[in-house]
């Protein structure tokens, strides 16, 4: 237990080691540690954010899917409705067309009958006149007797 110059030597060594540690050892190591801690913290925050984003996206996707399904159902419903109205309209139009065609046919037939009737009436009138001429054996002034003929024709 004797104090001597060894103490001075150790003191110098101590100062040197502390200085070296402070200059060249401590700052890079603690810097790396702190930087890594920062990086890990950032990574964790990012992953948390990602998870939240994913959750949000899932909710959004589900919503959109639901909406799309509802829209599709709507569209199908509308298409069905429209289809049935088109069928109805077409049926109705077909009916009325038919009615019209039938009515036209009737009126044509009617007109034909009327015409034939008229013709027949004329011919009967002419036959009557011819008959009357033969009966009277004389010439009838067709012009003078036309009112009688007309009367006859009307009576037929």
């Amino acid at each position: 237990m004797n104090i001597n110059a060894t103490l001075l030597g150790e003191l110098i060594a101590f100062i040197f080691f502390v200085w070296f540690c402070m200059k060249f050892v401590w700052p890079p190591i603690i810097g790396a540690i702190e930087e890594r801690q920062q990086k890990i913290a950032d990574g964790l925050a990012a992953s948390e954010r990602g998870e939240k984003d994913l959750e949000l996206a899932q909710v959004k996707a589900t919503d959109q899917l639901k909406e799309a399904k509802a829209q599709a159902a709507d569209i199908i419903e509308q298409a069905k409705k429209r289809g049935s109205t088109i069928v109805d309209e077409e049926t109705q139009r077909g009916h009325s067309e038919r009615e019209k065609i039938i009515a036209q046919g009737y009126s044509e037939v009617e007109a034909e009958r009327n015409r034939t009737k008229e013709e027949l009436r004329q011919q009967v009138a002419a036959l009557a006149i011819a008959g009357a001429e033969k009966i009277l054996e004389r010439e009838i002034d067709a012009a003078a007797q036309s009112d009688i003929v007309a009367k006859l024709v009307a009576e037929l």
């Binding site: 103490l7 030597g9 150790e10 100062i15 502390v18």
Partner: peptide, 9 residues
């Protein structure tokens, strides 16, 4: 001497 060098520092 060693320990005193440290403590004196």
């Amino acid at each position: 001497n060693m320990t005193f060098a440290l403590s004196i520092g």
